[in-house]
Design a binder for these strands. Sequence first.
DNA 1: AGTTGTGAAACGTTTCACAGCT
DNA 2: AGCTGTGAAACGTTTCACAACT
Lengths: 209, 209
Amino acid sequence: MKHIAEPTVRRLTGYLRFLEAFDADGHETISSGELARAGGTTSAQVRKDLSFFGSFGKRGLGYGVKDLIASLREILGLDTRWPVVIVGAGKIGAALAQYRGFGTHGFDVVGIYDTDPARVGTHLSGVTVRADHDLEGDIAALAPRIAVLCVPGEAAQAALDRVVAAGIRAVLNFAPTSLVAPEGVTVRAVNMATELEVLAYALTNEARD
Amino acid sequence: MKHIAEPTVRRLTGYLRFLEAFDADGHETISSGELARAGGTTSAQVRKDLSFFGSFGKRGLGYGVKDLIASLREILGLDTRWPVVIVGAGKIGAALAQYRGFGTHGFDVVGIYDTDPARVGTHLSGVTVRADHDLEGDIAALAPRIAVLCVPGEAAQAALDRVVAAGIRAVLNFAPTSLVAPEGVTVRAVNMATELEVLAYALTNEARD
DNA sequence: AGTTGTGAAACGTTTCACAGCT
DNA sequence: AGCTGTGAAACGTTTCACAACT
């Protein structure tokens, strides 16, 4: 499998999301142009993106919606469910644990952890908050593949090191700190401050020459 | 001003964040190599990124930390404060409203809005939740430049259309829906499902050839 | 007729390498 | 001697344009 750039993977997830809605509306086929409009790109881009993985369309007709959904799920690794642990049960961790979209997209929250004894034992959408020191044992037992870090910035690097030592290779970081991870571990950051700053830059430079 | 690519802007915000910590530690100068290590990039990239905006360093010495912080703040438009409205006071909206990093990075939450009468009038870190129908009037009165959408997916496009009609040109969308905005309006999306799917793809293809 | 799949061209970003300054 | 600033090269991504197919 050739290496695929991250922007491509992002677009593919967008196509999949649109196709699911399109399928629910009862459509059978879709053209690259329609997909492009939905994904904010061009028809040539859509066809290039898909052509990395094979030929899914029929010339003159377009793509079969259900077939393409199945192909994209397989390409993206979404034909299985992914167990996930959430580290930190503060406001963000709790909000995420209760987010239904988690489950509907194939991700199962199998554990949520916190150091605060007041939070341990509380329930969030069917998952009980467990003590921080259960983390390593639970990762060994439940084999989650992804960890979502919702701890304060000061604690984020330590939390990353712990989940990586326990065998996790993919991490989504909500803490407002940039983290260093060993080779082979994928870390993605969701950082409000960065997003707002990119918007501030766009506003500052909206009067473009 | 030449057009600067988004990845560049993202890196600049990262440099700024690191420099603030570096300054707090009492360092006076920094080399492009040190900045690169902190930002997960290369020294040449750091120098190129900065050279778009001018010459900030001293050959043989590096960059003055305080000077570079000031320059980056100005470049990014962070030398003023940005008023922000939050639309939707559910779990995510409420969590964001109470996030202190908002204020420390130069963004002021001047209003938060919800349709649910049970939420209207409640207080979140000093800001009172206001009724949805106050949105347009408040935008006219308070002149926020950025709107953060924390409404359910079905309501997101309508919320975007309203804030755009009221004069907002920069939007951060937390709803799990891709939105269409008119030319001249910058929309950035923060989408958990997309981030998790990118991680799932990375894990699926970690056995790389 | 309509739409895909894909080489080739265009474009943009990153890396290299070194002259130039302190 | 050390580090920046920057043209040029390398690389990667997107757009174009059209042959191939239904």
